[in-house]
Design a binder for these strands. Sequence first.
DNA 1: GTTAAAAGTTAACCTTTGTTAATTTTTAAA
DNA 2: TTTAAAAATTAACAAAGGTTAACTTTTAAC
Lengths: 195, 195
Amino acid sequence: MIDIPRLNEYLQLFKEFSIDDAKFFFSLTRQRKLKSGELYVQAGEMHRKVAHIKSGLMRAYFINENGEEVTIFFRKEDHQIAPYDCIFANKPSRMFIEAFEDTTLYEVDYEKLQEFMARHPQYEKARLHFHQKLLMETFLRLEKFILMPPLQRYQYFVKENPELVQRVPDKYIASILGITPGSLSRIRKRIKQKG
Amino acid sequence: MIDIPRLNEYLQLFKEFSIDDAKFFFSLTRQRKLKSGELYVQAGEMHRKVAHIKSGLMRAYFINENGEEVTIFFRKEDHQIAPYDCIFANKPSRMFIEAFEDTTLYEVDYEKLQEFMARHPQYEKARLHFHQKLLMETFLRLEKFILMPPLQRYQYFVKENPELVQRVPDKYIASILGITPGSLSRIRKRIKQKG
DNA sequence: GTTAAAAGTTAACCTTTGTTAATTTTTAAA
DNA sequence: TTTAAAAATTAACAAAGGTTAACTTTTAAC
């Protein structure tokens, strides 16, 4: 089913995108298919690529001092994924990124993207849009940590990400919320009891 | 004292900035002086302006459901400040921003900034840089909430912001860390005792 | 320098989380 | 369908945070 407002948003962004530019840009990308569970970015790696997820689900995580995986975010189809620290800070990625479901994505070297943008500054507006969206998303998440205790954080998260909550086991949701699976389990129980 | 690497970073960003453009851009800005404690942005207000802080310190905060102020960030001299939600989401600001010390800033209407950038796309690179820096900062803060318990979060914060910790009473630091002043006080005690 | 206000600390009490380990339920594989 | 693996729940205990209120210290105002 087509999401009209969203499609419109995209069309606005790319309305000045000429067919030739689009073709050329597409020629810079390459398709990759990943099996569920397959590692896409390794911590320590200089992975200076940005990917558009055509279909599937990706998971980014750290490994903490106890050797445990700590999930920091998921990105699904029609969204972009990259190890931010590597690209923005030009340092080896500190995060791992894996395919959480079978995933198809298109990736482009960040350097090539930079060249393209340098030659076609008229598209900076579109890029800015993506950056601002990501910044707002990140800032909103941060806000919840400052303002809400875990129970409310969970309720808010479910409201904002109903689909993801269905698509992913609770232990990953707990991780994103900064709590343990046991604690999340108790929170769910409390919500059930009280309403 | 001059911070050479930082100055260099700026010079790189603005090396293509012509004198005429700089003059014109400056003509779009206006200086404002705020007394310590003076409100700069009111929640509910459409404050579509971006400000460069020349000197002083600004504080952004929410008012939570209990009517308490919850500080979300400080911004000091040589940095930029704006109510992100208002500018990026084009909705009334949900945050308050006040001068925490006597502050001088230069502000520009976001619309005028947009016009300027549309006419001078060569400066998008500089803008992108600021956005990426802010995004990295925000993402790093979020990371700490997911990965660290309050005690470590505090220690990390002090390490990363030694100056701010000196400059601002502890209760604001506690708020930024998502804990109560009482809890921060106990944390400090624990650190003293154990080392 | 005195005084009032703000900030910081502490204590008591309750709530919640983390940890560990056992148990149950669910999911996926054979 | 059976079986094994993964996820979720639960319990017991210790550790930590929230709340409230009293008290101390620090800061700022007069």
